[in-house]
């Protein structure tokens, strides 16, 4: 009982803080954040990307994105470490009830389409809403559908590790190329900016986003695969 009263009291206190925050909030009628105004004004000419968010995430604040990808990689490796299963604890013939044929056969049609959509999203990351992280998540959802249709499927560790390390190295190499050939780390202007709003524009930004997409897709598929493989562990 006293616990409930404490919870309600805490929620009321936080609600009061939010209410006071709401009092000073008002909807502005023009962009008066200096940094945001700078990005909005110069993203098209300096970076050449139609999507200002992509310009900020990959170029202006590209170093933060490198850290973000690293955090995702760390999460994936800690998950594989925590859920490590010894070979002798694996039950090879775990009973699973057979899947419905509708799921199995429709997944064979839908999975390639999902992969295609994911690749489309990260290739067009500099033009349309979307980008590497979103495209990678879509690709991982395709892998998840494959595992639902065929529970005994194993995500190949070698393939995942290969894709992940190659794209991670390529991300850093592109950043260093920007440092050597253009203004600074992850500067995208060492490739021609091209015509604004077309596929081959914004210099190296689409390339970097493709590698981010592959890396995120591989990492998320690895997480899904580890959790699924862990279910084969013997119940001691």
């Amino acid at each position: 009982m006293i616990k409930k009263i404490l919870i309600i009291g805490l929620l009321a206190g936080v609600g009061l803080i939010f209410f006071n925050l709401l009092q000073v909030y008002h909807v502005p009628t023009e962009l008066n954040n200096k940094l945001g105004a700078y990005y909005a004004e110069n993203a098209a000419t300096q970076v050449g990307a139609a999507n200002i968010i992509s310009a900020i995430v990959v170029t202006y604040r590209g170093f933060d994105t490198l850290g973000e990808v690293t955090i995702l990689f760390l999460a994936a490796s800690i998950i594989s470490f925590v859920l490590k299963v010894r070979k002798e604890d694996i039950v090879s013939d775990r009973f699973t009830s057979p899947n419905s044929e509708i799921l199995i056969y429709s997944s064979q049609i839908i999975v390639p389409v999902i992969f295609l959509v994911g690749i489309y999203i990260f290739i067009n990351g500099h033009l349309t809403p979307g980008g590497g992280f979103q495209g990678g998540a879509v690709i991982a959802s395709g892998v998840l559908l494959m595992m639902l249709a065929n529970p005994s499927m194993k995500v190949s560790h070698n393939l995942v590790a290969f894709v992940e390390s190659i794209s991670g190295i390529a991300f850093v190499v592109l950043g260093v190329l920007g440092l050597v050939l253009a203004g600074g780390f992850l500067d995208n202007r060492f490739l021609p900016l091209g015509e604004f709003g077309t596929m081959l524009s914004a210099g190296a930004l689409p390339l970097i986003y493709i590698f981010i997409g592959l890396k995120v897709g591989a990492e998320l598929s690895n997480i899904i695969g580890t959790i699924s493989y862990n279910q084969n562990e013997k119940n001691s």
């Binding site: 009628t29 945001g36 990005y39 909005a40 004004e41 993203a43 968010i53 349309t128 709003g197």
Partner: peptide, 27 residues
């Protein structure tokens, strides 16, 4: 980051000339 009456910070060729007047805060 919402600004009244403005749209998402994704430009096209027309709005790129006057981006400041058409987008919300991208940060």
């Amino acid at each position: 980051g919402y600004v009244k009456g403005k749209t998402a910070p994704i430009l096209d060729i027309i709005s790129a000339k006057d981006a400041l007047k058409s987008v919300v805060d991208p940060v």
